[in-house]
Design a protein around this nucleic acid. Structure first.
Lengths: 349, 349
DNA sequence: TGCGGCTATGACTACGTAGTCATATGATGC
DNA sequence: GCATCATATGACTACGTAGTCATAGCCGCA
């Protein structure tokens, strides 16, 4: 009785067992339409008996396709953790695998790229505005299809997919104006990133059109900690809780969580003393404790578009796609009933 | 002038360029100690000129090692998102890559396992108590070293690493007793999971020893939603906010976030009306808005131990390791000063 | 001088698959 | 009844590397 030497059975052995050639076994699994039903049956039965599983490594070597997509994302980011789940799911649907790389400092990206080159991934999702253009250009100059995700800076180097940061921030700003907010400040994350700058631009331009001047206040990064710490400084800056603007537009949801918690720790009520908006549409933004008014990034669509670009024939992927988001209204902003601009003053503090 | 056909240069071409044999090129990159310094120099220079990068796929085929570790985790879980970052970091330090698979329903695990077999990963981290024993046994019966992570049920099938759920829950229970809580209920997640059962066991046994009977209340799953929804039912069950026990021990942090938000939405103050503890030690548990008293799982250690087990020679990995956690005291539980058991009544409601 | 031992290197081959080419078998057209 | 064609299959080889084996050169010691 033949034993199942599982995981080490080859197509040759299956061929012997099934009484066909190795080629027929290979075809049964990779191009079944080329094999007669009777043969397929025999092969499948033999494979079953022996515990055969096609070797994807060998297949990749021969076919020059790995069916593996690499993703390079920052390790500690609620936003990217959220997206990775979506990436993974969509890749699975396409029959591809996800080779995940995380980094905590941008300087780690270089060595990651080296690994990606070695593994001959079919494509790379460079997922972050924290990745500098050098890394992006290295990858794409290697002939690896790359899509810079939410990295609107990478315009001339590789394909890119991003939410419409400017338009999204504009939508949020419009919403604030419509709900009667007359003074707004913008709390930025990492001002080195294009996302941050574009969100501020969208906000300030829109507010400006309504005669509101929107100062930029830098938290330094997009994480909770930064938001929490900036809260006290905001109070200093404006001269106390009573002097805060009507609303704070925060550049990212995680940052906004920190801002809200920090404000509350300082006795500021959200939204009663100040409205707060976020940006990203994280699941946690809907949690009752925060319930943030935020711009929801259509994660499913963003990633679908990005993967389609990776899958498209090389070179054609040099597109730069911007996807619109939508405002999710939560309890972190005041909603003075059907207030319009005429009586908006009533909702100001 | 030779062009850099990047990504498609082979060791043979580098050998020709450097004036050595292919074997010497291969050795320069995989066993440099076998190559004379002078040759290494020539090879490195030639490789640089041609833009050569070793092909990890071919290497894997030849050497029967992929340097890839697979991880199978639930897609929507704060806890696992937290751990994936740690896994990824530690694998990078070991020169390995992470092939990530996520699932939303346990039924999806089967197809994931199929992919893992094809890719001949060096090992698999089966990261969840949601994965049934069938899947675990399939993997390990394939000769793929597998470590069931936080899956204390898998005792006879593969190696496993888990936090000491029972001991951790006992620590939390002790803390509650020490801080004067005299009545406690346990809010469970998915009672099908061993983690849930053991945490309850640790809690109830310990509380029992102090004369406290701890009922089990099922939220059904470990996610925020479940926690939020169970809050109202808790009030029903106990007959109003005033009749709640002194403390609720919740089986997981994310679940606890939901419980807290749900309680607050129903006008219950945490910790003033009821103390709440979590379990996991997620970063968010330290956020000011929640600031949960929780059992911190030592993520770094857990994963290090798991990876060491994967790396150990096959067969030896059949160990079942339990790692202790520690209590992080937050603001979600009352701390009546130096209250001890003698005057604990004073802090009861 | 001669011989064992050590280092560095090249020739060769296997890893397991998929695609190319050639061939055999029927089925179809005139 | 012969040429044509589609289908099914087998033999063969290449994908790019790493390890095995053999050999050449070299040192030291008798």
């Amino acid at each position: 009785m033949r034993e199942k030497r599982t995981g080490r059975v080859t197509s040759v052995e299956v061929a012997a067992e099934a009484g066909v050639s190795q080629a027929t076994v290979a075809r049964t699994f990779s191009s079944p339409h080329l094999v007669a039903d009777a043969s397929k049956e025999k092969v499948r039965a033999a494979a079953e008996r022996l515990g055969y599983v096609p070797n994807a490594i060998a297949r990749s070597l021969k076919s020059q396709r790995t069916n593996i997509v690499g993703a390079v994302v920052p390790a500690r980011s609620e936003y990217w953790q959220h997206l990775v789940a979506e990436i993974s799911q969509q890749l699975a649907e396409r029959g591809s695998q996800l080779l995940l790389f995380t980094f905590t400092k941008p300087s780690e990206v270089a060595s990651v790229v080296e690994s990606l080159r070695q593994y001959r991934v079919d494509g790379v999702l460079l997922a972050s505005s924290f990745i500098d253009n050098d890394a992006v250009s290295v990858v794409s100059s290697l002939g690896i299809p790359a899509v810079a995700f939410n990295h609107p800076e990478a315009l001339d180097i590789s394909g890119s997919v991003t939410v419409d940061n400017e338009g999204g921030a504009a939508l949020l700003a419009e919403h604030l104006v419509e709900t009667g907010h007359r003074s707004v400040a913008f709390v930025g994350g990492d001002s080195e990133t294009g996302s941050d700058r574009r969100r501020f631009k969208g906000a300030s331009t829109t507010l400006d059109r309504h005669g509101i001047i929107c100062p930029y206040i830098a938290a330094g990064s997009f994480d909770y900690e930064a938001g929490y710490n900036i809260a006290a400084k905001l109070l200093d800056h404006f001269g106390g809780a009573g002097a805060l603007p009507d609303a704070l537009m925060v550049a990212g949801d995680e940052l906004a969580f920190g801002v809200i918690d920090g404000l509350r720790a300082n006795g500021v009520a959200v939204p009663d003393d100040v409205s707060v908006t976020g940006f990203d549409g994280l699941p946690q933004a809907s949690w009752a404790g925060f319930d943030i008014t935020t711009l929801v990034q259509p994660a499913e669509e963003l990633i679908r578009v990005a993967l389609e670009q990776l899958a498209s024939p090389d070179g054609d992927g040099q597109e730069h796609i911007s996807v619109g988001g939508f405002v999710r209204v939560g309890g972190s902003t005041r909603r003075p009933g059907h207030t319009n601009l005429n009586n908006a003053e009533g909702s100001s503090q």
